[in-house]
């Protein structure tokens, strides 16, 4: 049907308009674009604006915690404002991946897709939002009782690390789906790289027990190796989604509702007469 659409115009805005109007995968592509954009915003918020990452020392004294919140208070609240606006768009990524899983050739593909979406959305809501709130509330009044500031400080990082189960499970579901998928929407080797991701999610769990060393929440193993693996995998994953979207069938015949519009009782006009398109067979 793309052959019948008008030719792609030149110019960024005109091209974008063309795609939104005629590309049967426009929603998928926009969801795809939201992934690099939203993840970059998240990275910027965590690493440069709020100074939440790389994580500060869990064994900070109360006085140092007060100093941390006093020093970065405004940036923390500003950064989380930016994050709270953009975070919901990560749900688009989850929706896109969950939907792609539903299109795979494996038993109960739809259920696997729903399961993926539920797990990932749960992780995003609890992991990112709870840590944003505790951190914002702590920095809102750095003159609070230092013990309470320390409580909020701990709650921030432990709720951040302690919700890994959602991501672990989401990743596990995706991995299984890729490896079991007979249509090979994603290459098998990518499925195997997903295993890195979910195994490293397992490995941060000691961070909720120990306060120093490589397994604490700012440690070499629990934070640095984990994060490097995650970011590397994330880059692969954006490219893999790109190819998967190209390979998958469009969500729906875009012109189905146009056909319905031709039926008596609706206010639509004939498609064939207005756009030169012939109605598609059902």
């Amino acid at each position: 049907m793309s052959a019948a659409a008008p030719p792609i115009p030149s110019g960024m805005v005109a091209k974008a308009r063309w795609h939104l109007r005629h590309n049967p995968k426009a929603d998928l592509w926009v969801a795809w674009w939201s992934i690099p954009i939203a993840y970059n915003i998240m990275g910027m918020v965590y690493f440069t604006i709020t100074h939440m990452m790389p994580p500060p020392d869990p064994s900070k004294s109360q006085a140092e915690v007060v100093e941390f919140f006093t020093r970065y208070g405004f940036e923390i609240r500003l950064g989380f404002g930016v994050m709270l606006v953009s975070l919901a768009f990560l749900v688009w990524a989850n929706g896109l991946i969950g939907w792609l899983i539903m299109k795979m050739d494996l038993p109960h593909a739809k259920a696997w897709g729903y399961a993926y979406m539920l797990a990932m959305c749960g992780g995003g809501f609890t992991g990112a939002y709870m840590s944003a709130f505790t951190m914002s509330v702590a920095s809102l009044r750095p003159d609070r009782d230092p013990a309470m500031l320390q409580l909020l400080y701990d709650a921030t990082y432990i709720s951040f690390d302690g919700t890994m189960g959602f991501f672990l499970f989401g990743s596990l579901i995706w991995t299984y789906a890729i490896l079991a998928d007979k249509s090979r929407l994603f290459p098998k080797w990518f499925g195997y790289t997903c295993i890195w991701n979910f195994t490293t999610e397992f490995l941060v769990s000691p961070a909720v027990i120990v306060q120093t060393g490589p397994f604490s929440w700012n440690g070499t193993i629990a934070f640095w190796i984990d994060t490097i693996v995650y970011i590397g995998w994330q880059v692969i994953y954006v490219f893999m989604l790109y190819y998967a979207i190209k390979r998958v069938d469009p969500p729906k015949d875009r012109f189905r509702s146009m056909r319905l519009a031709n039926l008596p009782g609706s206010r639509g006009t004939s498609v064939a007469s207005t756009s030169g398109l012939s109605p598609q067979p059902a």
């Binding site: 426009a26 919901a88 969500p251």
Partner: peptide, 27 residues
């Protein structure tokens, strides 16, 4: 789901985000 992109991910995304809002209100 009845729109021209219907069957794509958007309707599911919409439901998930509305749930998130309600959860935050509950908190």
């Amino acid at each position: 789901g009845r729109m021209s992109h219907g069957g794509g991910p958007l309707a599911w995304v919409y439901m998930a985000v509305t749930l998130g809002g309600a959860c935050m209100f509950a908190a």
